[in-house]
Design a protein around this nucleic acid. Structure first.
Ligand code: FES
Ligand code: FES
Lengths: 141, 141
DNA sequence: ATAAACCCGAGTAAAATAGTCAAGTATCAT
DNA sequence: ATGATACTTGACTATTTTACTCGGGTTTAT
């Protein structure tokens, strides 16, 4: 059970963006340098973030990205959804009435994993980008 | 972020074992058939569970495994630890004072992931095998 | 015109996962 | 005693997923 770099980097990059999100757009190159994430990889991630309207892009020289909403309104769950960082605990298809090994009923542990998924999702629903930068106000990164 | 089969199957198999854990040991073959998990794979998993003293083995005909403690005392966290299902959210080494990309300070999101890890771990610390079988008393599996 | 930036899709090496397989040893029922 | 059942161990491997890279484009400020 571990976090993949897609989710991690997306949040990292957006935290960086939120910090420097004044009037001027922030370029991926800057984020790449500050956070130590490959530029090419960042482009992939931001392409998804833009499609889900979490950021806006500004092309051309002096271009970059800006947040599309207030940091307070961007919850981690939105970011994770945007970059396809799934939280997958059950093995079966949730909609299906069948169990995980093709059995007609749900397995012994299905409800447990479902509960776990809710537990984790709750965390991501609560936390916003703003929480993140507030917590780090005193730090230099 | 997803659960691997090792953790999932370990809990599934132990839930099955806890249910049928009367006087007689339960053979992996039975668990394999009931839960649809490969016997060879179960053997790997139970080898670890035995080494961590979560189950006891009884060899020979009519042999099998029994729980080594009361179902109430076996928390999911113990099971996960036994089979090396890790909960890994931070990228850096936790003990190290360095950040994840080799930087001298912890990254912007380190505390967040740490909090997430605690949040998930808490869930596994609370839940016991007993909770699992209680919840399923009414079910037929 | 040039350079800085975003945009897009395909491709790929490495790591992790999810097992399988082979060759045992112990114990019980008969 | 003997066979069958079941645990024990370690190595090996196919598949999938991850974590990128690469090559080409387009837009825009200066
Ligand atoms: S996880 Fe849903 S039925 Fe097993
Ligand atoms: S996750 Fe610990 S420093 Fe980045």
């Amino acid at each position: 059970m571990k976090l993949t770099t897609k989710g991690r980097y997306a949040v990292m990059a957006l935290a960086d963006l939120a910090r420097f999100n004044n009037i001027n757009p922030v370029s991926l190159r800057d984020i790449s340098l500050r956070q130590g994430i490959s530029l090419d990889y960042l482009e992939q991630i931001f392409s998804k973030l833009r499609k889900k309207e979490i950021v806006q892009s500004i092309r051309g020289t002096q271009g970059g990205y800006i947040l599309n909403k207030k940091a307070k309104e961007i919850k981690l769950i939105n970011i994770f959804e945007a970059v396809d960082e799934k939280i997958k605990t059950v093995q079966c298809k949730k909609e299906s009435k069948k169990g995980c090994n093709g059995k007609p009923t749900k397995c012994l542990t299905h409800d447990l994993w479902d509960e776990l998924e809710n537990h984790i999702t709750y965390f991501f629903e609560q936390k916003s980008l703003e929480d993140l930068i507030k917590d780090n106000l005193t730090r230099r990164v």
